[in-house]
Computed example of a mutant assay.
Amino acid sequence: MSLDHPLNSLGFAKPPAQTRVVVAMSGGVDSSVVAAQLASEGYDVVGVTLQLYDHGAALAKKGACCAGRDIQDAARVAETMGFPHYVLDYENTFREAVIDEFADSYLGGATPVPCIRCNERVKFKDLLATAKDLDADCMATGHYIQRKMGAQGAELHAAADSQRDQSYFLFSTTEEQLNYLRFPLGHLSTKAETRALAAQFGLTVADKPDSQDICFVPNGDYAAVIKKLRPGAAVPGDIVDTEGRVLGHHDGVIHYTIGQRRGLGIGGLVDPLYVVKLDVDARQVVVGPKAMLATRRVPLREINWLGDGDFLTGGARQIAVKVRSTKPPTDAILRPISATEAEVELLAAEEGVSPGQACVFYDPDSSRVLGGGWIWRGR
């Protein structure tokens, strides 16, 4: 194809009909609209759904993805729009790469974010490799995030709709992956626009509810899942204050998270207490006043740098960060320690920063995502 051919909407200098794109289809409205939109534009669309866990268990669960009814919904969209659709069994991979680490991290007193690991280790690794095996020019997903071309190549940017932005869950996307990925929904202003497109294409998922919980954690009951995955893991222990005085007892550290106030079972105190530490080895839940939850220094490892220049030699940088998905970015200073480790100094203290969560970097002057790392306890 001539280099003079105008770029199509996916950035290739050839007609859509000669551009193959694999769409990662979870069965929800977002990825369904992506597939339908690209098919309507004349692209050579191939839909692929990963079955991540047992069909039978998932059929009865609402608001999940990648199993049961959702696979059927994805297949129905493909049939409606007239493109091929494949289902790949990734149960073993998902269990080993995501669920097992989730369980082990939780048992270690951390607060893991398995959706990030799923994107990193399954969708943007194995599924992306499958897309290349199918000779696809790119892979598209229904994530709300933007890919923009900058002076030095493809950049990752937060979605136009801050309420739908999923950049926190995609910080570990590598430059190589970003070159191959496309995110057609990132520029939309509201979710209503996505649903309107679904209705326009006549998709049965147009009014389908969004997934809410972690796909393999029904009703957000983490402890129940851990008990099933690791029988005998819920070992009783003491609830203690910061001086070690016993205030109560618990049925297992897995029932608690940093910052938790309710459900401690230690009423009668003048001032409310919060979980400030989980000591797995001592089987202790340590509680203290809310002020003890505040922190300004956040140790990070497994850094993924998407900014310009070399991460380590660039020195300290003023950036904005998210230490949880539900809060807007806040000003911070990023200090590299090694190619994979750093410390973030928050200019304003944050409460409840927990090991196992992600700290995502943003350009303070734009929507660009600069990467991020995993919060840990430090040395």
Score class of each variant (00 low, 15 high):
S338R: 07
R261M: 09
S26N: 00
V275E: 08
G244P: 11
G27H: 00
P328F: 06
L346F: 02
D213Y: 13
I116F: 03
H250I: 00
W374D: 07
E175Y: 06
G42N: 10
L134F: 13
L273D: 02
P218C: 07
T190Q: 15
P236Y: 09
Y362F: 15
P114K: 10
P355G: 05
E101T: 09
S2E: 09
L306H: 05
G47C: 09
W376C: 09
L52Y: 00
H187Y: 13
T194Y: 03
R20L: 07
T174I: 05
Q18I: 02
V21L: 07
N179H: 14
D238G: 04
R379V: 11
L107F: 05
V21K: 10
V286W: 00
Q212P: 02
A97M: 12
K277E: 14
V285K: 04
G371L: 01
V45S: 01
I319W: 00
G47S: 12
D104F: 06
A332I: 02
T141C: 08
D73N: 14
G252A: 08
G47W: 00
I319S: 01
A24H: 03
F361W: 02
T19D: 01
T257V: 12
R117N: 08
A154Y: 06
D161N: 15
V353D: 01
Q177A: 14
H5P: 03
E350C: 10
M292V: 07
F201V: 09
L50P: 00
G237R: 10
Q284P: 01
V270S: 12
F12G: 01
G47D: 10
V280R: 08
V23M: 09
C115M: 10
S167M: 04
L50M: 15
L247P: 06
A349W: 03
F169N: 09
S31H: 01
A234E: 11
Q152C: 09
A97R: 15
L38H: 10
N92V: 09
V48W: 11
Y256Q: 11
A131L: 07
V225S: 03
Q177D: 06
G378T: 11
S26V: 00
C359T: 06
D165Y: 07
E155C: 10
V298Y: 08
R117T: 07
Q212S: 13
A58E: 01
